[in-house]
Every structure is written in structure tokens, then in C-alpha cells.
Simulated assay, not measured.
Amino acid sequence: MSLYDDAVLVLKGYEGQEELCQSYLDHLAAYPDGMWKACSAGHVTASALVIDPEHDRVLLTLHRKLRMWLQMGGHCEPEDVTLRAAALREATEESGIPGLTPLPGGPVRLDRHPIPSPCNWHFDVQYAVLAPRDAEHVISDESLDVRWFAYDEVADVADDSVVRLLEATRLRLGA
């Protein structure tokens, strides 16, 4: 199964955000290359919110280009076999934390957002992952900083997309 096929299956099985989810499926139907950064009409990305083992903090990255605190994530790569694997790879690369564990179930949220040229849109499929105990993060080349934030601090540093992802993740965790 290709990453494209996995994305279509994941999106068809996703519950919630029906209109937005359909826009993802419509995009992929219109653009067979819609998984890849080269698709200038927009492309699917994969991200993951890193949660600490006690479920009271999240690890955010200060994105080098955007200069915003965000969850870990980015473009799909040819070696990614699933969206979940792409999100886990991105979270591991950007946090430097080995042994991240995806939360059960599919994506936590979807978030489509405009980006500067040469591409129009990111169709982000958002997951959540748990960090192992005593995890130590590092700052990647894509980040200016990486830092843990208590849940109640996130709204003060991050945009609404990250806040919504945290809320949906907390619901998934049963918090």
C-alpha cells in the first residue's frame, strides 16, 4: 500500500471535522501528487503533539522559519509508509526523543492552513504521541528552541491550532 492509499484510508475512517476531512479527500482526488511538497496546490503534512508521561505538559518547537511555537511535524517523505509513521518520524527528528509512542486510534485532528509560496496549503494530519519517562529533547536544525509547556501555558505561547490540538488530545487521553 502506498502512502497516498494510506492517507485516503485514514481520512475515510476519520470521525469528526467532516467538511474539512472531505476537502482533504477532494484535494487528493484532484492531485495524485498531493502527498508531496512539490505539489504547489497544497500537500498533506503529518504532525504530532508530544505529551509527557504524566499527561500535564506538551513539548513544542519554536519553528525556525515561522517563529511560532508549534507541535512537531512536517512534510511526508518517500520512505514514510503511513501518515502515522510520518508524524512519528517528524516528532522524533524534531524533538530528538527516541521511543515516542503514538496514542491509540487515528489522527487527533485535522488542520488546513495557508502557507507562503510556492505552495498554497498544508493539509495537516495531526497525531499525538507520548514521550517516555526521563526523555531528554534536543533542538533540531529546524528549531530555534524546544521546550515543555504546562497545558495551561499553551494558549499564551501558541496559536489556536495548537490549542485545539491540545484540547482534542486531552479528550483522547480522557482528561
Rank of each mutant, 00 (worst) to 15 (best):
S40H: 14
M1S: 14
L83G: 02
V125M: 04
L103S: 08
I139M: 01
V129A: 10
A91H: 02
W69Y: 12
D80A: 03
E142I: 11
I97R: 01
S2V: 10
Y4D: 01
T101C: 12
E153T: 14
S23C: 06
R147M: 13
R133K: 14
R112S: 11
E18K: 09
Y127V: 03
P104D: 11
G96W: 04
L11K: 01
H55R: 14
K65R: 14
L100V: 05
V58N: 01
D80H: 08
E93A: 15
A168N: 06
A87H: 05
V81M: 10
L110H: 02
H55S: 11
W36K: 08
M35I: 11
E19D: 11
P53R: 04
D111I: 03
C39Y: 05
E153V: 15
L11N: 01
R89E: 06
R112V: 15
L165N: 01
S47W: 03
I139V: 15
Q126M: 14
R170G: 04
H43L: 09
R147Y: 08
E15M: 09
L59E: 00
Y24G: 00
V8F: 00
Y24W: 10
P98Q: 14
A155F: 07
Q22A: 11
G99N: 07
G106T: 06
G74C: 03
R147E: 12
G174A: 11
P118D: 07
W121C: 05
T45C: 05
A86C: 08
E79Q: 14
R109V: 06
P107G: 03
H122I: 08
F149A: 07
D111N: 15
L49I: 08
S2F: 06
H113C: 03
D52P: 02
C119Y: 09
V8L: 09
P32F: 06
D56C: 07
L28Q: 05
A135G: 08
